[in-house]
Simulated scan of single mutants.
Amino acid sequence: MSFDFLRTRVEQQDLLNLKRRRVLVEQQNARHLVVDGKQYLNFSSNDYLGLNHHPEINKALAQGVEKFGSCSSASSLISGYQYAHQHLEEKVCQWLNKPKCLLFNSGFSANQAVLSSLANENVAFYLDKLSHASLIDGAFGQNGYAKRFKHNDYAHLDQLLTTSKYSNKLVVSEGVFSMDGDAADTAILGNICQTNHAKLYIDDAHAIGIKGTHGEGSVADNADIDIIMATCGKAIATSGAFIACDNDLHDYLVNFARHYIYSTAMSPANAWATAVSIELIEKEHWRREKINHLSQLFSTKLDQHVNLLPTSSSIHAIVLGSEQQAIEAANKLKAQGIWLTAIRPPTVAKGTSRLRVTMCSSHKEQDINYLAESINKVIQ
């Protein structure tokens, strides 16, 4: 029969302990979720600042629906670009000190939009080895030249740029890496790019809201970042994404980024709510301070045999090795009322399957103590 490979490939994934399955979550917030009627402590949420369900954001969303409707009803270049979108763009520009901002419906589409529209025979992309799949797909699925440098190895990047024959060079990295939780040194990256006449693109999905006095992400490092992408569905607790950049790239993307041109614009109600969320992030410093406190507490409570990767973010990776080990550990923790997802290839390299623990400001010290105690028992 035709398309027999559909079932065959999924069956192969199952045999390799790599099959992915959806789980129906009945209720959720940054601290708890409910699955099949059972409540778990939730350590797999990207709602880092605990802003999901915030009454002011919910109120703004309702106001946005009342003012603008739930849908933009068209692409931004037809009739979908509304005041709510302009308001959010101006808010982002002020927050990140950038001239222009462009809104997208997801971080994946934003990353692909920029890289695919820039790709041509005169452009070279240099990506950190651990760059997100959307960056890899955007850079390597096009006609331009793409090369990956060793993770956070700035000498290797400098060597690649110094010997590059291309006049248009774009360095791509992440502010905080989603699976390891470590950060790029964007100040060093900025200096290397300036020296080698390259542009710097930072995916700040997991740093926005978390880093900086006002949650401004990697720009807090005083780095010369030319392009910033950040998602709204994590710390910002709404949905969509944005690109913050200069005037030239903004105008170029409006004219040549197919993901932007041919997609219905972000919901204006969502844009309205997102602007309110950013205001909360800027002023409620305690959320970031609490994450730092809980993260430090967690690292001190784990036994020495637990392989916790170094991190300065809200992401804590515990590397176990095989896919089977990660699945078994996750299942044992679920039996103790803790929800942690086993992260397996191809999301991470083979032999580095892990538990990815995320700290949120909604967690309590007692949650962290119980989590560490349970992990110490499960991982021997």
Rank of each mutant, 00 (worst) to 15 (best):
Q142S: 14
L320Q: 05
I210C: 04
K350A: 13
Q325E: 10
C245W: 02
K165V: 06
H206W: 05
V65L: 11
M1V: 13
V92N: 08
T347L: 15
T358A: 12
Y262K: 14
A119N: 01
K91S: 13
E216C: 10
C245E: 05
Y81V: 08
A230M: 14
S44W: 02
G181F: 04
N52I: 15
Y252C: 10
T186V: 13
I225R: 02
I375M: 02
D203R: 09
K334M: 08
F43L: 05
Q194K: 15
E56Q: 13
A330L: 10
L118G: 01
L33G: 04
L102W: 01
E323M: 13
L297E: 01
A110Y: 01
T347K: 12
N196I: 09
D137G: 15
V254W: 06
N331E: 11
N105K: 10
G337A: 10
E26S: 15
A124E: 06
D185W: 08
D246R: 12
N168W: 07
H363C: 08
Q27R: 15
L297I: 04
R21A: 08
E284Y: 03
N331V: 14
A317S: 14
S167H: 08
Q27I: 09
S361M: 06
C101Y: 07
Q86S: 13
Y252V: 10
F5N: 06
G69M: 09
S263M: 05
S299H: 02
I291T: 06
S72A: 15
N105E: 05
D204Y: 03
R354A: 08
S134H: 11
I281H: 02
I315V: 14
K377Y: 00
K290Y: 02
N255W: 02
L6H: 04
N152V: 11
G240E: 07
E289T: 11
L161I: 03
G215K: 08
